[in-house]
Design a binder for these strands. Structure first.
Lengths: 360, 360
DNA sequence: GTGAAAGCGCTAACAG
DNA sequence: CTGTTAGCGCTTTCAC
């Protein structure tokens, strides 16, 4: 425990000094070799590499980070209850995408799942920033009045938002082009099938994408010359979706909707089954469309017609944007082009939960 | 960029020196205050706290870690494709549990999602260890011949396994008591309903829990005096489960199973719908039981009868075990009691996908 | 009760 | 080409 001389391989882990000693060179030589900076002869280089391999040594991430370089970690805070998280793989998918881009760069992802209590999320970001644990953070699900961009700026912590900010904001964000294409296609699909009374079950109204999608829905309806459809606001939970469907189907036959769009797949599946419990066949009596295109949609019966959104690609794009930002920050002077990452627009996937309207 | 004098608040973040300067004390005084070590007068203490608050300063995690203390981060490597990850919230749930225990301790979780290519997982652990990014790692899904425990030991990286090791091993592990209770109850339930031909669709055979559960299934059947049921091995994917059901239901009516147990809920749901597509009603023609009790099970129609497993609690227990291990390592001399964490045994949740056998 | 100084493992100037 | 050295931000003896 006490008195561990540098270079001694006691209980501790090998350090750069151990490697240098074993290779018979100085520490700076080792440093130069591992960082690929030139000025080292081939034989020396080889000796260093061998020594490092024998000792199973890699530079300590902590020491490198302290030295002023990067942390080689990105942070992400998920402000959701574990229940919602488990039902809705939105985050999981995004994280998969993020990781796939992070791994080759030897970056890690520091995840924080905090509850939905207000303030918890902010505290998490704050700690991430103050403790300098990460080089930057990736944000999702921006909300109306979202204070996170401001917060992160004041914390000087680079951020990339997946999605659109709630109001024009200099925050770097990634987003698929043609965001409204999915819902438009969904409405078109239903109209073509003869549906005239189409309802929309939206997510919590404090979400930016929720409001956006709802607006697209309303616009699309109007453009088709249809009267405004009913719009119900629901939580992202199954119970809430079930309640919404109950309400929708309680109307008189000539007034109730013949098709429903849901804000996400989980709600759509829950809603679909709620309808069935009420004696409505899907799609015979009611057509249902989801959003996200989760694997879940293919599992259920009938398979879900839904709007596909490439969350994995979005996650990758977010990381790419972050790296560009980090590089730009470092080089400061050279204003990197920062091309918008290519993300495919949302797209309608027609499966079994939509069919012709029963009565015009 | 150049020549940033200590104590200057330029573009950089405040350091302990800035706080000390602002409070008019020495850096060590600040350190003592933030670490709650005594020897500081109340007024001085207050001045330090005020200064830290004003500067929004917290100790840099990196510096603290380098100083020899802990990293305050745990690692986890998920060796699965993003697709499986998205369908099966197993990991998500576990991570939620882990986080809920980590957060109050101000610990972070460094996540690595690597593909299923062999070696990728090992490399990830290796890097985590060599770069000293985490204090320890949490493992799941131990496999037959799992080399990770050995690897981690040689890396001197503390580890906690969720589940049982494939062979007696000193690795610290957490697990619910009465592991076999769930499947036994499931078999009992089916037998009581009059089922005599019960099949089992197992997961990949290289998983320890897969083999264990299958054995429990076989034993339970034997104890009830039933002939061995058919056992099919499937991947953890929907397609694979669908194929298994096809095979099972292709048999002659007097030979085909009237009930099927699946290794997890996702497979069960996929199987249930495959059966329906083949013209079999669930539970009228076929009873189905899953495993895990994911939220998904309540979403679908009919709702899934399944074996509940408290993954969240398991995640929490794993972290608790890790902390005890870390404390023990530190104190070295004091062999902490290390009581087994309390995790509820798996339990059968009866819903709608099981019913009386149609023919004895 | 408080401060000065030595490192933790590494990188980057600067010498040789 | 290679070695010496000064910190990065913090904690921790050890003096005062």
């Amino acid at each position: 425990m006490t008195g561990r001389t540098t270079g001694r391989r006691g209980s501790g882990k090998p350090t750069i000094a151990d490697v240098a000693a074993l290779a018979g060179v100085s520490v700076s030589a080792v440093s130069k070799v591992v960082n690929g900076r030139g000025g080292i002869s081939a034989p020396t280089r080889q000796r260093v590499l061998d020594a490092a391999a024998k000792l199973r040594w890699s530079p300590s991430a902590t020491a490198v980070a302290l030295r002023g370089a990067r942390t080689r970690a990105l942070g992400m805070v998920a402000g959701r209850s574990s229940d919602v998280l488990a039902t809705d793989p939105h985050f999981t998918l995004l994280i998969s995408g993020i990781e796939s881009e992070l791994a080759p760069a030897d970056y890690g992802l520091l995840l924080h799942i905090v509850g939905e209590e207000p303030g918890a999320e902010e505290r998490a970001y704050r700690r991430l920033a103050e403790e300098r644990r990460v080089d930057g953070v990736i944000l999702t699900e921006s909300r109306i009045g979202d204070g996170r961009f401001e917060l992160l700026r004041s914390l000087r912590l680079p951020a990339v938002l997946v999605g659109a900010p709630w109001q024009p904001d200099p925050v770097v964000s990634v987003q698929a082009g043609g965001q409204d294409a999915g819902i438009r296609a969904a409405v078109d699909h239903l109209v073509t099938l003869g549906h005239r009374r189409i309802a929309y079950v939206s997510g919590p109204e404090d979400r930016v994408h929720t409001v956006f999608r709802r607006r697209v829905f309303e616009t699309a309806l109007a453009e088709r010359g249809l009267r405004p459809g009913r719009v119900l606001v629901s939580e992202f939970t199954a119970q809430s979706a079930v309640a919404a469907v109950r309400e929708l189907l309680a109307d008189a036959p000539d007034r109730r909707p013949t098709a429903v769009l849901f804000a996400n797949d989980t709600m759509a599946v829950a809603g679909m089954n709620a309808a069935r419990r009420l004696g409505f066949e899907v799609p015979r009596d009611l057509s249902v469309i989801g959003y996200d295109d989760l694997p879940l949609g293919e599992l259920v019966y009938p398979q879900l017609t839904t709007v596909h959104q490439d969350l994995i690609q979005l996650g990758r794009a977010a990381v790419a944007a972050m790296f560009r930002q980090l590089d730009a920050d470092r080089d400061e002077e050279s204003p990197t082009p920062v091309p918008d990452p290519e993300v495919n627009p949302p797209e309608l996937v027609i499966r079994e939960s939509t069919g012709p309207a029963r009565e015009g």
